[in-house]
Design a protein around this nucleic acid. Structure first.
Lengths: 356, 356
DNA sequence: CTGAAAGCGCTTACAG
DNA sequence: CTGAAAGCGCTTACAG
């Protein structure tokens, strides 16, 4: 903290008039000196800054936002906070925003009910300069409402019509995962996906990854019976549940592609509980390269979530600062297959019979 | 979204005067009708609400905050976002705050530099009605600066002098973990802890858990050589690194207590890479009951992080709404040992010799 | 129950 | 380069 002034008198309790008085100038000059906007003689500025420091003056963000029309705050809307992807993205976002002196308002809408309440109240209106929407499953009405805010919007993790975005190519990532299995010689490949608790709260990326799975299978001439597409709730337990369903089926697949790593973790768990050997009995591949993937030796297709967050934040800032000469773009970040220990060629001969 | 009015004209673009005009009342009456404060005839109120709905009027949070002195916003300060504990706490916090109609400002200060910049700028001043500090490693000056804000403060995850808090008893939790190992017959028990990248950015809970380890060992007459206390960075990789150090030591412990689960995950990884069997060669116990703990079959001492968040949020709200008849308290949530597959009695006879 | 007025604490044309 | 003044959009005593 600062040296020896204003101890105990309270940070942020003095107003611009106090600083003006102490520095012997007008409030207008204080404002200009502190913001760096407008011409102020170097000498005056120093005097003002000194006074401000003495009084631990911090301009009221509310007042300056109201007067200037810029809040220097952005809103981030997320469906989850405890999933790896979202935590990492938000982490990347805050890092960039804090460095730029922006505050971030976090809206955590984990269900359709939360989301609808949010849109009814619209706490974003006149409160933020821009919005980052992380994979939020939005209806057309929601999107319209967001647009009606008339402030810059960036979508991360999924594309939204007419909006700049930063994401990965989900279809291609799924292809990479499934092709890896196909190249190893697998034919009987299952898909483990996440489904929402609420109808209408499903992620676009889930759809795309499912589509990628199907098309990779199709391209290899392996039309999967739909019994091989199983779903569980988002999160680790959902992967376990979905895998359990597969284990209770007539014929166990030799390989599994989980839409994202946390589902794969759950799947691994179910497989181990069932006494199956990985990858000998069943291969498993995920998507994310979650920090636990290496610990569990999971083969996966990696994406860089934190970079998605910081890139999206940077795009938003550029638009806000008006230094965006480039038109809104869609940035597609690369993904990369990381082969680890949970995938191997299928066993020759007879298929495995589930032990449960 | 709402029915059929104001499509396209933009949410939040109308001001209180517009609503007043449409309803044929004064702005003051609009304010009273919408806020529910002050006496307004039921009839008038309905008319105003109708007008507001038609115009999709949402009061400017900045203006009303400035005028009323209440921002209906709280600040949450966290050192990490991608660690299980913090994600879970923040999740609990947002759930409560959103239900109460409060917004949450997220400050993610992952390093001493971030933290110092934050305190220099003090973006919290006049911007929030209250603050939740999650385990932030704060110096006395920081604490004073926070106090100088003169708004309600709640600490979660660690106690701060004179502040209400909600946490667990870290010493007791560590005792439970270590005593479990001792009761199994272990004597040669190591401690795996996390250390900060920056000096002065270490967590209080880490200290307490280390203290708990030492006192449990001491109480059992097992004074551990300090070579058995090893540290790595926060996170999974840090646990792996710390465990590797143990593996390169002269004598391998028969059991390991990791200060929290993510470190334990890393430790498990190192052990497996070294070809050691768990729990036969080495037992491992963590602290948290992280959602991955079950997947990895990790014995651990569980805590409920989300509840810590929602409880702290509730405490803060009660203070803010002035309905706190109870003086500031320290809530201590229970922890519970969950015995799973990574702990067992030590092997009889000769100690294991590391294979690396 | 309702309105006119002052005020919250800034910023920014507008003059000079 | 600097200041006086208006205004941002609300809320809340104060009257009536």
């Amino acid at each position: 903290m600062d040296s020896d002034v204003d101890r105990g008198s309270g940070t942020g309790r003095s107003r611009i008039a106090d600083v003006a008085a102490l520095a012997g100038v007008s409030p207008a000059t204080v404002s200009r000196s502190l913001s760096g906007q407008g011409n102020v003689s170097a000498q005056t500025r120093e005097r003002v800054r000194d006074a401000a420091r003495r009084l631990s003056y911090v301009p009221s963000p509310l007042a300056s936002g109201l007067a200037s029309g810029r809040t220097r705050t952005i809103g981030v809307v997320v469906p989850f906070l405890t999933r790896w992807y979202f935590g990492s993205v938000v982490s990347g976002v805050t890092r960039v925003m804090e460095a730029a002196g922006y505050d971030v308002l976090l809206y955590h809408l984990g269900s359709a009910a939360d989301r609808d309440r949010f849109f009814a109240r619209m706490p974003l209106a006149r409160r933020v300069d821009g919005v980052l929407s992380l994979c939020m499953p939005l209806t057309e009405d929601h999107t319209l409402a967001l647009r009606a805010l008339d402030i810059p919007l960036v979508s991360v993790g999924s594309r939204m019509a007419g909006l700049p975005s930063v994401c990965i190519d989900d279809v291609a990532a799924a292809h990479a995962a499934v092709n890896h299995l196909i190249n190893l010689g697998h034919e009987n490949i299952a898909f483990v996906g996440g489904i929402p608790d609420d109808p209408g709260f499903g992620f676009v990326s889930s759809e795309l990854r499912l589509r990628g799975y199907r098309s990779a299978m199709g391209a290899a001439g392996l039309a999967p019976p739909s019994a091989l597409e199983v779903f569980g709730r988002y999160g680790i337990d959902g992967g376990a549940t979905a895998m359990a369903r597969l284990l209770s089926g007539a014929r166990l697949p030799t390989a599994v592609f989980a839409e994202y790593d946390e589902l794969a973790f759950g799947a691994l768990w179910s497989l181990r509980r069932a006494g199956l050997a990985i990858p000998q009995d069943v291969s498993v591949v995920g998507l994310d390269d979650h920090e636990m993937a290496e610990v569990l030796d999971l083969t996966t297709v990696g994406q860089d979530a934190a970079s998605q967050g910081s890139l999206a934040a940077t795009m938003l800032l550029e638009t806000l600062d008006g230094r965006s000469d480039t038109p809104p773009t869609d940035i597609v970040l690369p993904t990369e297959l990381r082969v680890r220990g949970t995938t191997a060629p299928p066993r020759r001969g007879v298929g495995v019979v589930p032990s449960t």
